[in-house]
Every structure is written in structure tokens, then in C-alpha cells.
Nucleic acid binder design. Sequence first.
DNA 1: TGGAAATAATATCTAATAAGTATTAAAAAG
DNA 2: CTTTTTAATACTTATTAGATATTATTTCCA
Lengths: 297, 297
Amino acid sequence: MIELRHLRYFITVAEELHFGRAADRLHMAQPPLSQQIKQLEIALGFQLFYRTKRSVQLTEAGQVFLLESRKLFKQLDQAIESGRQVSRGESGQLVIGFISSSAYSVLPEMLRSFRSQVPEVRLELHEMPTNEQIEWLRQGKIDLGILRPPVEDPSLQLSTILREPMVVALPESHPLIDQSAIALDSLSRESFVLFPRPLSPRVYDQIISLCQQAGFSPHIVQEAMQMQTIISLVAGGMGVSIVPISLQNMQRTGVVYKPLAEPTPYAEVAIAWRQQDTTPSLQRFLALIQTLNLSEA
Amino acid sequence: MIELRHLRYFITVAEELHFGRAADRLHMAQPPLSQQIKQLEIALGFQLFYRTKRSVQLTEAGQVFLLESRKLFKQLDQAIESGRQVSRGESGQLVIGFISSSAYSVLPEMLRSFRSQVPEVRLELHEMPTNEQIEWLRQGKIDLGILRPPVEDPSLQLSTILREPMVVALPESHPLIDQSAIALDSLSRESFVLFPRPLSPRVYDQIISLCQQAGFSPHIVQEAMQMQTIISLVAGGMGVSIVPISLQNMQRTGVVYKPLAEPTPYAEVAIAWRQQDTTPSLQRFLALIQTLNLSEA
DNA sequence: TGGAAATAATATCTAATAAGTATTAAAAAG
DNA sequence: CTTTTTAATACTTATTAGATATTATTTCCA
């Protein structure tokens, strides 16, 4: 079996063209050097040197193999170097999952500052709902999730990065449009467009419970996975909705957002990652998020 | 000291993500495998795996190093293969870059004699200007360049193979055609067709400077990358030019070549190759060129 | 829960093999 | 023709890769 030792020895002998001197340079005796070179020649299947009893010369094949061997060591050095760089977090990649609504709030700011401060790390982004993110985090398919709490899984670590108030989204033709704040009970006869409960059970239940307190059960005419879709449905007059305030950033025409008259529920956004997962890229991302004030985004 | 053994073991463990199974595949016991991997990590200076007591995962650095390690073995195989080929006398190929004008001077003779004396080496030829050849030599895309000095790069070796006088190229309808030699100042009102300076700054500057000495700055109406094109433009009456004498071999009708009355500048042609590059094919080519007398070509 | 199974690490021992020593054979130098 | 140089061979020693036995956790399942 060929080992790097063989190549190191070969290169030295090829440079010295003298077994004795090469052995000196390698801090070893001459006979084992001869043996190792012979071993290499047998493994390769061709002669590296023309030897007489007194002199040593490279064969043509030996010349070619010398160049290739040197290249090999260069490449090894480079492999080690790039490994070290990655281990120091000076390059590498970070795979991130995010909920669609975060694209209108925290995500842009996070990406911008990571890009500018850690440009050597490649980012890969996947839009997906919270429950799917949890699964992908477990399987190691993503390194970081931007999602809505709660997350029960104890192997995942969680940090809340944003608490945003919920607002009412109305079609611009709606009669309540002139009010500065909407009382919930004025919506008791309205059709509601909401996200499916599994997407964010906590926020969903908050909304339902608020309506209950206002004395009615909301009439849900349509569910949609994506916040964008919900907003589009509202714009199309399908109904009203209650959504996180950051959706305002979408600038969708045909929709007007109004604060609630009642004490507002808050929708939280958190980041989640595997507890044991300590890739340098991730560490840097987490450290950077600490420094950001995302609540205004 | 890192050995290929370490890399073989690492690759297997990385593929199995399981020390026990990896050890099986390697026909060895699990403990020494753990030890060798640990040894490798110490030598590299970074972790390759995240290990818990029960599971193994590649670190980011490990992922990078895995790819690099595989490349390394591929390159080793290739090194062995090309060594074997050479040893069987099926020695590979020689890739040559050449300036277009050499096709009318040194190149044909070089190729003919190499072909006849070293038929087992395949030749690959690329026509390209000097500056491009230098780049390709550096990148190892060509093994030998036939080009115009100067070449500054210290990693390249140079040998001049031809010094040829420059002559004036005139359209055959030109009034000066009856003169046996052309005095430069008689061209002060002429339109010139020349190559772009970067192609051969030394020759270009020589021409300009000669004109200056004759008391005028040449009026350059057209530049062309290829000497053939320049000659065609002259034949078409676009202007006159000053070109290496070997262009006569082109036998282009409609053009007449006349020596200069002034002391002639010489255009040199040289061969260049990587200093450390000593493939047998190249060596033979270089040796052969020594034996040729190209100055008459 | 509690115990069995799985799994990587550690400690210790054995065997393979790399390296060393002594010597030989041949060639070159004087 | 002797001395010196040099690589190869034969044999011994030292190193270290690998094997065995065991341990410490963790996971899985009853």
C-alpha cells in the first residue's frame, strides 16, 4: 500500500540523486531508504530510477511521477488549509429555514448584516412553515430555523427575536375603514381568512380566544398556508384577517391595516438550532443576531 | 505525520458515520480506527467529527476535508497512471502554443523533425498571441510556448531560437516598388497597418522609435491581431507595414517585401517553458531544437 | 422505569514493519 | 592495484499499527 512516506522519500532521493545524502536529509539510514523506494516501485509497477552500482538517475516515468508527487503534497497542504479556515469559521455554509412572513420583517436585516460581516460564509435559504423547519432541524437538513414558537423538542435551542403586535387586515372597500382602531366585536359577522392552526397553534389560539372574549366565534371561510396568500385573499374581498404587523411591509394595495381596540396579542418570531450543533458559521450567526435590534424591522 | 492511511480511514468513517461499520469495511478492529482518526485530527489541527457517545457526524471542516481527500486519491491514481504510460513509452502529449507568424518560419521545421524522431508523442497545437501563451504556460495549459520576447515571468525559462530582420511590406501598385531598399523617411506620409502593441511591445516600440529617428510619427490606420491579416490589408491597399521577413513565406500575391535602408530591427522568436517542468516529452523536444538550425527557415 | 443493546473511548498487549547495523559487491578514482 | 564511494543484502531492533478486553454512555424497549 502506497503511503505519503514513500512519496516523501522518493522526492528527496529524486532531488539528491544520491541515496546516502537523501537518507541524511531524511534523518535515517541508507538501507531502509533503498528498501522503501523499491517498495514504492513495486507498488507503482514501474521503475523510478535507473541505478548502477554507483549512480542514480530518474527514469522518464520517474520525472513525471516526481512532478505529480509534488503537486500531491501541494494539494494536501491546501486541503488542510481550507479545512482549518472552515474550522475557524472563515468560510463554510449555513443552511437556513424561514417562515414566509419573516421575509417582511427580520430576515432582510439579518441577511444584510451577516452578508456584510461574514461574507465568506455561503447562505442557503429555504422558505417553509414552522413544523417542517423543526423536522428539518432534527434531520440536519437545515442549521437554523426562523419560526414561530412554541417548539417542544428539547434537542432544539430557541431564542425569541421579535414580538410583534397583531393587526386587522381589511379590504380597502370595507365600511370600517374610517375607524382608527377596530373593536373585535365589530367583526363578529365578518368572514375570516386565517392560516391553518398547525402552522402556529399559539397565535391561532390567541386569535380564537380573543374573539370568544368579544362574544363570537370567527367564521373562517378560507385557510391559506402563506401570509402573502392571506393578504391577497383579503385584498380580493374574500374576508378580513388578523395578521402580524410586519405584513404591512408587503405594501399590497387593496388592503388596509388597522390596530385592534382590545389589548393586542403578540406573534413571536424565534430562531431555533440544534443544541449540540456548534459549527463556527452558526456560532457567528448567533453572535451577530445578539447584536441586532430587530424589533423595529 | 499524516499518511494516506489516515485519509483512507477518514473517508471510510465519513462514508459510514459509524466507527464499527467503517472498521469492518477496513478489515480492522474499531479501537485502532478511533485512534488513527484522533491522530489525524491532532495532525490537522481541527476536528473532523462531532462525536457523542453514540453518534458521529462530520464537522463543516470535515465535509470540506472529505471532498479534498477524495480529490487527492484521484490525483494519486492519475499520477500512477501517467507514470505507467510513460514507462511503457506511450508517453502522453506535448501541448504547444505558437504565434501565428511562426507558422511561416520555425514551426514547420520543428514539427517535421519532432514527428520523425519522436513519433510516439502526440502533439497538440494552439495558435495564440504571446501574452496569452504566458498565461497558459503558468496555468499548465500548454507545455511549451513559441512566442516573441520579452517574457518577464521568472518561473518561465526562455530560449531564443530565431532573430529575423524586419522588412517593409508594400502593395504591389506602390510607387516605391522599384527601389531596392526603402528609406524610412520616404514612408512618412504613408498609412501604416500594424499589430496592437501588447502583442509584442518590444518590436512595436522598435518600429515607432525608428520612425521617430527618421523624423516622423507613423500614421496607423488599422491594427490587426494576425500577421496574415496585416499582409492582406497591405495587399488590399490599406497601407504599408513593417513585418518580420519570414512573412515572405506566405507567398501572398499583391504584396512586395523590401529591405529597409536603415539598420534593421530584429524580431526575435523564442521558446518558453516552465522552469521546473521536465516531462520527458518536453525534454526531448528541447533537446531536438538544439540540434536544429532554424535561422534559415 | 429498569435493564438490554449499541457504540465510541480507553488501557493493555501483540504483531507487523519500519528503521538500524553490519556487510557485500561493484564501480570509480588515484 | 589499492582505496574510496555507493547501493544492495542479510539480519536485528525498535516503533507503532492493530487486536483484545473493558468501560462509560446513550438509546431503546419491555
